[in-house]
């Protein structure tokens, strides 16, 4: 799936995710979901649905894994 990199978007590290679901619950735009496939460690890792992220970072701050989610926010060209 192609993500529009001119808009904010999360990168979810599939390997580190433990499928707790906190990010899905915390997302105000409901653009995260628990994925269908198992990761290497046996968890259904969370996925970004591909559009709609506003870069609020709620998912980043609520995620218990330090390196499972990163938020990319494009800056206006100067």
């Amino acid at each position: 799936m192609d993500i529009d990199k001119n808009k904010p978007y999360p990168i979810i590290n599939q390997l580190e995710c433990k499928s707790c679901g906190r990010c899905v619950d915390a997302c105000p735009k409901k653009v995260l979901a628990i994925g269908d496939t198992l990761n290497e460690r046996g968890y259904h890792a969370a996925v970004y649905l591909g559009e709609g992220c506003i870069g609020c970072a709620n998912c980043f701050y609520t995620c218990p894994e330090p390196h499972a989610i990163k938020i990319h926010i494009p800056l206006k060209k100067s």
Binding site: N13, E16, C20, Y43, Y61, C63, P64, E65, P66, A68
Partner: peptide, 22 residues
């Protein structure tokens, strides 16, 4: 296999607080 995953259970609060302190 997941060298950057914590030893905490899914949904544990420790990782969240670790991030805030760090």
């Amino acid at each position: 296999p997941a060298p950057a995953a914590t030893h905490y259970c899914p949904g544990c609060g420790h990782g969240i607080l670790h991030k805030l302190i760090g």
